[in-house]
Computed example of a mutant assay.
Amino acid sequence: MTAAGTLGAVPPNPAQTSRLRTRLQALVRELGKFGTVGGISFAIDLAIFSVLRGSGTEPLLAKTISTVIATTVAFFGNRFWTWRHGQHTHMARQYTLFFVMNAIGLGISLAILALSHYGLGRIWPVFESQLADTISGQFVGTALATMFRFWSYRRFVFRVTGDSAKDQSVAPSSSSAH
């Protein structure tokens, strides 16, 4: 018991705690699926980029080609698995938005790669090596671009609503349905 005008402990609201826990669990599952699709796409991107750079392809062109191929794989994985409960009203619209968001993500990766290879490489030639290109373009650039992509896919492309998150948490066995 507290005196009038003083603050005391507020008892937890079980309904709010349960809803928050449910939403958090749904978000964790979503991040896991996004990460799995992203990991597969990253491996494809890395392999193609490495082969192209090894064959003498210019770094920015190699990154562009590898990203376009990996992005196509990521679209199908995210649409039909990660956010299959999201709004899917118009596939052409989603595909277009997905590629626009990936173009922005590619721009982020290319900016990091260009800064490393052409900016820092002018000062320190080691930054012009294939290893430096791989680290800056594939790891640093991709990490920054991935944060942007998760946010933009969820917000603009596959639009996860509150009802969609509830659907995922109510029927956990539905994650293996597709």
Rank of each mutant, 00 (worst) to 15 (best):
A92L: 15
I104L: 14
R93Q: 14
G86Y: 11
W83Y: 15
S50P: 05
F76P: 00
F80C: 00
L115A: 14
F99Q: 13
L110Q: 15
R79G: 00
L60R: 13
Y95L: 15
H88T: 10
I104A: 13
T71W: 07
T57Q: 11
I108W: 01
G119K: 01
R122P: 00
H117W: 08
A62S: 12
L110A: 15
G105I: 04
G54P: 04
V73M: 07
L97T: 13
T67R: 09
F49A: 06
A74N: 10
N78K: 05
T89H: 11
I48M: 02
M101T: 11
E58H: 11
R84C: 04
Q87L: 11
G107W: 09
I108N: 04
Y95M: 12
G86N: 08
I69M: 11
E58A: 12
G54A: 13
I48T: 12
S109H: 03
G77V: 08
L120S: 05
F49K: 02
G121W: 00
F76E: 02
H117N: 10
A62N: 04
R53L: 15
R53Q: 12
A62F: 01
T96H: 11
L115F: 15
I108K: 07
H85D: 11
G86I: 10
A103Q: 02
M91V: 15
I65G: 07
H117D: 13
T96C: 12
F76D: 01
I112N: 03
F80I: 00
I112S: 04
F75A: 01
T89Y: 02
V51T: 08
G54Q: 07
G77I: 06
T64C: 07
G107E: 09
T57R: 03
L61Y: 08
A92Y: 10
F76Q: 04
H85F: 12
L113R: 03
H88V: 11
G86R: 09
T72E: 08
L52R: 07
I48Q: 03
F49M: 12
G107P: 04
R79T: 00
A74S: 14
R93L: 13
I104S: 09
A62P: 00
T71L: 10
I69T: 13
Y118W: 14
R122E: 13
N102L: 05
L52C: 07
F99W: 10
T64P: 01
F49Y: 12
G77N: 07
